[in-house]
């Protein structure tokens, strides 16, 4: 009896250890194989994202000097960033980008949610409506920016015709700062509201139907239903849509580039436009990269803190 017992207790650990060893070896082999498969794509990713990002960081922290045959990197410096902080152009671009991001994302989320709620009510014909709705989103920004430029154009634009037809005179849209900013926001809202609507709609149809029925039996309807049930349940979805939109809006480049060229003056110059101008028009590689790096850093901090605040909501989505 005793003998067998001791035998058993001896046998188990050794066999366990042996099988563990075998498993470990298998895992190592599998891991090696995995590396072999992923190396090509890692190389591509490294080439097109990691390299440019690191290079921008290096540029932004270097004394870059231009000469006849390209540029050369001098020593390490914070100079580029201190130039930014003391530049009114950068501070304006930062303020404008933040303002533009907040206003357009806010409007898009409110409008998009409303559209999604309407779409959800639609029992038949949701497919065609969805296609129609997604049209603005599917048009390349450069093209849609061109279209909006036609619409807001100063002498033959449709918008001006409409305004004068209803007796509001002939306002200038793209030629003066505030209307230009508003026009740019309208163009952006027109294009990206569908994106928000589709994300929110996807979240909406995933919500458990019986919870709404329970709420109806409990005495909810209309706005009360929306604020007490629908919105809290949708919060994780909306948070994700907002996150996507912040990331996109903060780096906006193509829309102002085509619509207003960053003007009039610098009124619609976003951080991305400013960085582009510094880099490729004025060939200030150091400060230009500093603009890009600072913008990336800021949006990263912004999104991370947003995530932190909304983490509980994102997690509570069941």
């Amino acid at each position: 009896m005793v003998a067998t017992e001791t035998k058993v207790t001896e046998a188990t650990p050794t066999s366990k250890a042996a099988s563990k060893k075998l498993r470990d070896r298998n895992q190592i082999l599998l891991a090696r194989l995995g590396w072999r498969f992923t190396t090509p794509s890692l190389l591509v990713v490294g080439l097109v994202t990691i390299f440019p990002i690191s290079f921008s960081v290096i540029l932004s922290l270097s004394n870059v000097t231009l000469s006849g045959n390209g540029f050369s990197l001098g020593g390490f410096t914070f100079n580029n960033f201190s130039i930014l902080i003391h530049s009114s152009e950068w501070r304006y671009a930062l303020a404008f980008t933040i303002f533009y991001t907040i206003v357009s994302v806010l409007v898009e989320v409110i409008l998009g949610t409303m559209i999604a709620l309407l779409m959800e009510r639609l029992s038949g014909g949701r497919g065609p409506m969805m296609a129609l709705l997604l049209l603005p989103w599917s048009i390349i920004t450069v093209i849609s920016a061109e279209l909006w430029q036609y619409i807001f154009q100063g002498s033959y634009g449709v918008m001006q015709q409409i305004f004068s037809a209803v007796g509001l005179g002939k306002p200038v849209f793209l030629g003066s700062p505030t209307p230009a900013i508003i026009s740019m926001m309208i163009a952006d809202i027109w294009k990206t509201t569908p994106f928000v609507a589709v994300i929110v709609l996807a979240g909406l149809v995933m919500l458990p139907g019986d919870v709404f029925e329970a709420a109806a039996v409990d005495g909810c309807s209309g706005w009360v239903m929306f604020w007490k049930i629908t919105f809290p349940l949708l919060r994780p979805t909306i948070a994700i849509a907002v996150l996507f939109r912040i990331l996109q809006a903060f780096g906006i480049f193509d829309l102002p580039f085509v619509l207003t060229g960053g003007g009039p003056g610098t009124s619609t110059t976003s951080l991305a436009i400013l960085g582009y101008k510094a880099m490729f028009q004025n060939l200030q590689f150091g400060p230009g990269s500093a603009v890009a790096v600072s913008a990336t850093g800021l949006v990263l901090i912004g999104c991370l803190s947003f995530l932190k605040v909304f983490k509980s909501q994102v997690n509570s989505g069941e």
Partner: peptide
């Protein structure tokens, strides 16, 4: 009459509790 005005209570098969 709408559900909220019928003075009924219902227990659903999947409970349908308010998750939030």
């Amino acid at each position: 009459v709408s559900p909220k005005d019928r003075d009924i209570a219902m227990v659903f098969q999947n409970y349908a509790l308010y998750p939030h």
